[in-house]
Nucleic acid binder design. Structure first.
Lengths: 154, 154
DNA sequence: GTCCATATGCAACAGTGTCGCATCTGGCCG
DNA sequence: CGGCCAGATGCGACACTGTTGCATATGGAC
């Protein structure tokens, strides 16, 4: 899409770990595993999917720990999640770790999730800030609608 | 805020009922009660809050029926809901029933929910349509961020 | 009034996320 | 290197939201 600064950190996990330490929090096996899974997947994963993947890499990690790790990482702005319709939350690395924010768009019919360029919401963010001082978080936005295939039925 | 056409239907409930009939579906006590509650509140309510309000107006309506009514009304595009963070879904009347679409913005810190003009996402919708044929549903969008009070801490 | 499709009541279930508490471990200091 | 302590984890049980199957009641048309 846009060229230029696309890779702020060669290894998102290492950078995230650095930031965990910088905040005075602990770097644990579970947290690192969660970060690694999210970085490798480079996709939005449900907590359950993360649990499954982490269990493969580091058996013995409890389901609850995944939730607590995600919660901690979210407080540190290293992970964000979105909620689409009635499905479970889907987590992903924060935009600044993966080279620019992406906006997720999901089709309400077939459930497919796609990306849109991160600057899609820049204007919206600007208007919200100007009109009511609202600081939009683009990484937490979920756009719902109908994808190309499902938009023109009949 | 913007003047002009603000009241497409004097009574959203009556209009909604008309559309239910037009679609060949049934107008029942529960569905009418749900619509009335949503119209009176003119706010986003959780299913539980709707259940409580309906129970007051029409005792004996079961919790399950609320969900099924909301589901039916959503299929008919009379009700929409949004999902913010880990909280329960919040339902509201469809935009065309209440005088133009509104976009909901919620502060991730204090939880306050505010409105933004319905045309906020017009450009975004246009770009998504042009670039990938995605038909955005503006009534189902939830924008998360920080409100004016919570945006400037420290 | 009668009839049929369908909406409802009910109860039990499923999935997601949370909590309390005992134990273990990461990071630090001697 | 070994010990210490706040904080993270494992474990189980729980809370909440939303769903499903089935018998019954009700809406709407004749």
């Amino acid at each position: 899409m846009d060229d230029g600064v696309q890779h702020p950190t060669p290894d998102p996990v290492a950078e995230a770990v650095r930031q965990i330490r910088a905040h005075g929090e602990r770097v644990t096996v579970a947290r690192t595993a969660v970060l690694r899974v999210l970085a490798d997947a480079d996709e939005h994963l449900s907590a359950d999917a993360i649990f499954a993947a982490v269990s493969r890499a580091a058996p013995g990690v409890h389901r609850t720990t995944i939730y607590r790790a995600l919660d901690a990482l979210e407080r540190l702005d290293l992970v964000a999640f979105t909620r689409l319709r009635h499905d479970a939350a889907t987590y992903h690395l924060a935009g600044h770790l993966v080279g620019g924010a992406r906006v997720y768009v999901r089709c309400r019919v077939c459930g497919t999730v796609g990306h849109a360029p991160g600057d899609l919401l820049d204007d919206v963010a600007f208007r919200l800030a100007a009109e009511q001082g609202f600081a939009l978080d683009p990484t937490a936005v979920a756009l719902t609608g109908r994808c190309a295939r499902c938009a023109t039925p009949t």
